[in-house]
Amino acid sequence: MSLVTACESMQAQQMTSRQGKVVYGESNGELTDQGYARTYDIYTPKSYSPSRPMPLVLVFHGDEGSGRSISNVSQFNTLAEQKGFLVAYPDGIDQRWSLRKTSKRNIDDVSFVKNFINHLEQVRNIDSRRIYATGFSRGGILTQALTCQLSDRIAAFASVAGSLPRRLKQTCQPQMPVSMLMINGTNDQSVHYQGDEKTQKGALVSIPEAVNFWRDHNQCPAYTAKNVAFVAGNQSDAPAGSRARRDRSKVKTYSYSGCSGGSEVVQLAVVDGGHLWYGGTSSDKDVNEFNKDLGLDSTQTIWNFFERHSLPFV
């Protein structure tokens, strides 16, 4: 078991919780796990009450990132305030995630996430049936890895610019059906849509192969597959030939429902899209222009997916 200590910075109105004081808005915390001090950011909406359990979304940053950076990019805090859920952003050690213990780092971040959830349940009143995980890039790869061991703790998963490690695919046997949303660009030069060479270190399977893996695990009937264009806002009413009508075909959606245990698998393929959190904030003008034309809000799409899923009563 890990030694867990809480230490939150107060940045908003204080209130009493099961462990003393908690805050509305942004705060940060710390816990000790596997001999390392681990830090995180957490957002608590004003609708939170210590007497009422609230859903929790875990968000994992990419390499060279941090909890704060993915918070700024994804803007999950704004949505959490609007919709009424907690959101936590843990920091990887040296800004990276480890999927298994190695001789150099001796860190297992899948195990850390399990302990992190236990820690958060001590400092917030969390709905244990509605805990969700999402991440970008390496954080999306970690999200995929979590399914193998934590399908009994996390109700649904969403990876952005991530895929399933080939090594894990061979041994991944989740205890329960896994609801998975994958958002990937077909021209991603970091997480290749067609996957990596099998001999490559840390090789990832192709996006279609990962989707088929989750479909098979969930026993999804093949006839539920859909290949439709994503429609943002009221673009369906746009006149023929307009930018809105042209751009809405840039995202192909493949949806597989009717799977075991009410699970579903959804893939959004951004045609010619690169390595980014679609719809997120950016200092790059080209990225902002691309996102504006695309009209895909990954954060809202992920929450819409999460809202449909919860763990069964035990």
Rank of each mutant, 00 (worst) to 15 (best):
V251I: 10
R246H: 13
A269Y: 02
A238K: 08
R243F: 15
T253L: 07
P239C: 09
K252M: 14
L268W: 01
S249R: 14
S249N: 14
S260W: 00
G261D: 05
S249Q: 15
R248G: 07
L268D: 00
V251Q: 01
S242T: 14
S263N: 06
K250H: 10
V266C: 09
P239R: 11
S257D: 02
S249C: 08
Y254T: 09
L268I: 04
A269L: 02
C259R: 01
V251M: 04
S255R: 01
G262R: 04
S260Y: 00
V265A: 04
V271Q: 10
P239G: 09
A244P: 12
Q267W: 05
G241A: 07
V265K: 02
A238Q: 12
T253F: 05
Y256F: 07
S242M: 13
G262Q: 07
V251C: 02
Y254G: 06
K252P: 10
K252G: 13
A269P: 01
R245L: 07
G262W: 05
S260E: 03
G261A: 06
R246A: 14
S257T: 06
K250A: 12
A238V: 13
R245P: 07
S255I: 03
S255E: 04
T253S: 09
G241V: 13
V271R: 07
S263I: 07
Y256D: 00
A238C: 14
K250G: 07
S242F: 13
L268T: 00
Y256L: 05
A240T: 15
D247L: 10
R248V: 05
R245I: 06
G241P: 09
R248Q: 13
A244Q: 15
S263F: 09
V251W: 00
R248P: 08
S263Q: 07
R245N: 06
Y256C: 06
A269Q: 04
A238P: 14
V271C: 03
V270T: 04
Y254M: 12
R248A: 04
